[in-house]
């Protein structure tokens, strides 16, 4: 029971921390989530983390909250899911409320805007690092053949970056492809 209480607390604090430290887009969180849940707490493996991100990304709403909910659900069931979402919701509630009071003074401040530029450059490095890390891990997992994985990545990237297709459409398309492949493989095995 004690151990359970500890898990709840760690889960809540981790979700709170992840929400409090991630700026702007939801993708920097991939790096923070990996560091916290995969490397430090070892609650999930890297491959499962990518699965959970795929689910979080194809669901509506806040990606950070969705990912935290999935990790919370896995470790502590529904109470965990609730605690994780609460942890993600609290930091913006407090910080933005305070910022909205001091907003005009902050905006004019050159030092604040200069620091923002620097942090944005830092975010570039973090995302590049995440992509290199995930790429290596996916290329070496024991799923599809490498050439298939490279083709999938190239076409998903082109669809998203060049053609600006919505992420949900891309995910849905490959989801259907996965179902089709499964049916074909089964048919082949039965024949």
């Amino acid at each position: 029971m004690d151990k359970n209480k500890n898990t709840y607390l760690t889960l809540f604090l981790s979700a709170f921390y992840i929400s409090a430290v991630t700026f702007g887009s939801g993708y920097v969180i991939v790096s923070v989530i990996k560091k916290r849940f995969v490397d430090e707490l070892k609650w999930i493996e890297e491959e499962e983390m990518i699965n959970l991100i795929a689910l979080a990304q194809s669901s509506p709403g806040v990606m950070t909250a969705n990912t935290a909910l999935l990790v919370g659900y896995k470790t502590c069931g529904m109470p965990g899911a609730f605690l994780a979402v609460l942890g993600v919701a609290l930091p913006p509630l407090v910080t933005i409320f305070i910022i909205s009071i001091f907003y005009n003074t902050l905006r004019e401040n050159t030092i604040v805007s200069a620091m923002l530029k620097g942090m944005r450059a830092g975010a570039c490095a973090v995302i590049a690092d995440v992509v290199v890390g995930l790429f290596t891990s996916v290329i070496n997992d024991n799923g599809l053949p490498r050439i298939a994985k490279l083709t999938i990545m190239a076409s998903a990237f082109t669809a998203a970056y060049i053609f600006k297709l919505s992420f949900i459409l891309i995910v849905l398309f490959f989801l259907l492809l996965g179902v089709a492949r499964h049916l074909l493989v089964r048919k082949g095995a039965a024949a």
Binding site: I50, G143, I152, A156, F174, L175, L177
Partner: peptide, 8 residues
């Protein structure tokens, strides 16, 4: 199939 898609 979705794992490589997410990375992309």
């Amino acid at each position: 199939i979705l794992r490589p898609v997410v990375v992309a």
